[in-house]
Write a protein that binds this DNA or RNA. Structure first.
Lengths: 250, 250
DNA sequence: CCTCCTGTTGCGATATTCGCAACGGTCGTT
DNA sequence: AACGACCGTTGCGAATATCGCAACAGGAGG
């Protein structure tokens, strides 16, 4: 019993995320008449969530920037972490991510690109793979056991590479290890030639509220070199935690 | 004859932009029953455009990050300009903006914050004031005369400061000046103690596709000092234009 | 243990939406 | 310059999804 009209509108937004579209193309996506698509788009255009150029082609509008900005500001950790992550990015020159666990998924909420011209397929707002991403391991490792098992049970263990963990048991064991050692790695488990390390950010209650990570392609720095970045990463995560009110471990 | 359902959904998004809300609060915004708000929110939650925490409080969701990211990528200029703006930001240490004219309004499509801890009220996705922002002057100055007059005629000349231009005639004269000299300034016309300079970015056809600006609070650097940044700004804008395929002026 | 509060569901009345078909504007072609 | 094709836009009944209501469920707090 939910509004199918709004659902269709969301479909249109997703489609426009793939590029500019004409009214007819959008109508085709809905499998509906052009006039239907037009009537759905009009309020979104008025809200500046979508926009149309002179040639009547639709695209995503500037209100999305504003909403996304507000959404990010509502994620308190992000603002606190920003200067530290920027510094880590500057010091290592590598790609730095910040991710959070929200409603059963792990979402990237900030990203600082590598200085080197390497493409990494990640984007703020995308979900991380729960069984391979280092940030996901860090965040899952802190969940209460019951929820952890529940989440792990629902994962599809897509084998991205030869090293990807492919069973719930293997992942649960890995999470134990991560919880014990206080950091996680992704040793070419998601993409063949990319290694990551991640560390937890804790708030005043001690709960892990986010995970920071460094991701490095093999060609830039081999696996052992990435592990050598751990001290810097842990220092960064500790500093962020401190700014979040987390008392240093005692 | 447009969908009022979608319009209501947009209202909810705007409200959530102001902070987390409970279902009842959102229903109050619509002046509708709780169940109505619930049915509107459900598809948006499924699309991850909104999200709810354990306490059933709604907030903006991560899909907005993804959509905004895609929307920005669709703005070609932004990617091209990014490295140059980053460099200008590093060189001057001041706040750098990139704005574009889209459908009758001037929208910030990128921002690089000042190194100094000064708050500037601007955000990617927000509209610039057409009669005071330096970027707006640059962009309006390049419009065909007819559209320029039409847009100027619709401006509400809110007098933000004592120096704000308050008549269409004054703005049109200013735009002539801007077009002639190839750059624009905002000499405390929007906020009392902030000065800006802006320069046009042109594509291969010579049209102005964006405007880059530097904004500086008086306490950091007085007016004359901001004007002294002009050569760097113009060089940056020229470099971006070149990357956009604009042949250097001959 | 009970109560209160917030969110959730089922169900008719009704207002909104949908598809259709005709209109109008723009662009490219002959 | 006139024509034709194409795309977006509008008005109108039929149909359908939406709305408000009221009762239910499930925690949180006393």
């Amino acid at each position: 019993m939910s509004s199918s009209t709004v659902a269709r509108a969301m479909l249109l937004l997703a489609e426009l995320g793939r590029g500019e579209r004409t009214l007819e193309q959008l109508a085709a996506v809905l499998d509906a008449h052009k006039s239907t698509a037009l009537r759905l788009l009009r309020p979104m255009e008025e809200a500046r969530v979508v926009q149309r150029d002179a040639a009547h082609r639709y695209r995503l509008g500037p209100q999305l920037f504003a909403l996304a900005g507000q959404a990010l500001e509502q994620r308190g950790v992000r603002a606190v972490a920003a200067p530290h992550l920027r510094e880590l990015n500057a010091a290592t020159g590598q790609t730095v991510h910040l991710a959070a666990y929200e409603g059963g998924e792990v979402v990237y909420i900030d990203k600082y690109d590598s200085r080197h011209p390497v493409r990494m397929y990640s984007r703020v707002g995308l979900r991380a793979a729960l069984h391979s991403a280092a940030v996901a391991k860090v965040l899952l490792a802190d969940l209460p056991p019951a929820e952890r098992r529940r989440v792990v049970a629902q994962i599809e263990f897509t084998p991205f590479t030869a090293r990807t963990l492919t069973t719930p048991a293997a992942l649960l064991a890995e999470l134990e290890r991560v919880a014990a050692q206080g950091w996680a790695q992704d040793h070419a488990e998601h993409e063949p030639f990319i290694n990551c390390v991640a560390a937890p950010v804790r708030d005043a209650t001690g709960r892990v509220v986010a995970a920071a990570s460094v991701s490095v392609p093999d060609v830039l720095l081999p696996y052992e070199g990435v592990l050598a970045l751990l001290p810097q990463l842990l220092a960064t995560a500790t500093a962020i935690s401190a700014d979040c009110g987390h008392a240093a471990a005692g």
